[in-house]
Amino acid sequence: MSTTTPIPATASVPTGAMDQPRGVVLVSDRVRLEPLGPQHVQGLREVVADGEIWRIPYAPHVPSPEQVAGAVAAQRASDEAGRTVSWAVVDRASDRVVGHTTFLNISVRDRRLEIGSTYLAGSVHRTGLNAAVKLVLLTHAFEQLGCLGVEFRVHHLNIASRRAVERLGAQQDGILRAHRIMPDGTLRHTVVYSILADEWSGVRASLEHRLRS
């Protein structure tokens, strides 16, 4: 007769809601995350043109250069409504805007949120900058906000992004099948990953080691 190993009950966790995340400046040695504003429009136009990243398959959240101003305005409206918190990513070495990232699907009651809608200039891909951004965001989520879990959601065919999330140390929770109808009419199955609070110290140590290397 088969047996099922029970999932252990979580030890005491905070029962109160966490504070609503706000747009604050977040800084590390390598990056500065600035609350998204109209002053970032031109920089983000250059970001999406760098490598024409809006043409990357399975990333409809990346606007074309002509769509950036509207996308920033829409994102700011979402931020002001408390649904999301968005940042422009600045490379401190060059002091230029190199990307965009967001907290979304925020549940203050459950102390949980998603990191998503991230895009970076083509010239900084595979330079470790994405890991630096995620380290700043995860540190803020777990150590300042007191999150119990942080999610990442990825198109099932976006293998590069899936591998990047896995390298962060996130665990796959499952797949939301036929989750979204994409702009081109295809169906997206969404792969859900997460990092939990009791996994954070190990994930942080691994990320810091990667960045030192």
Rank of each mutant, 00 (worst) to 15 (best):
G169V: 09
T3E: 14
E208Y: 05
A132S: 14
L44S: 00
P63S: 02
T127G: 07
A49K: 05
S194T: 10
T102A: 11
V72N: 03
I7C: 11
D91V: 07
R177S: 12
L196A: 10
Q42N: 09
N158S: 10
Q172L: 07
H179M: 10
R30H: 13
L36N: 00
H40V: 02
E151S: 10
S206K: 12
V133P: 00
A73S: 13
G51K: 01
V90H: 03
P60Q: 04
Q172K: 15
G70D: 13
G149M: 11
A141S: 11
F103M: 08
V97E: 02
I115W: 01
P183C: 01
V97A: 05
F103Q: 06
G23D: 01
G82Y: 11
E66I: 00
V31C: 03
E34T: 06
V133K: 03
L207G: 03
P35H: 09
A49E: 10
G202P: 03
Y193W: 11
D29R: 15
D95K: 07
H155T: 08
W200H: 06
H40E: 04
P6E: 13
T118I: 05
P21Y: 10
Q171G: 14
A59V: 11
T3C: 09
R212V: 10
L104N: 15
G169C: 07
T15Y: 09
E143D: 15
L168P: 03
E114M: 08
Q144L: 12
H155G: 07
V48Y: 01
S2D: 08
T102G: 04
A170F: 03
T118R: 07
V72W: 01
G169Q: 08
V24I: 15
E208S: 07
H209M: 10
T186Q: 14
L33E: 02
D95L: 05
R22L: 14
L145H: 06
G128K: 10
R55S: 10
H40S: 04
M18K: 04
V133Q: 00
G70T: 04
T127Q: 04
G116V: 01
R55D: 06
H61W: 15
F142A: 03
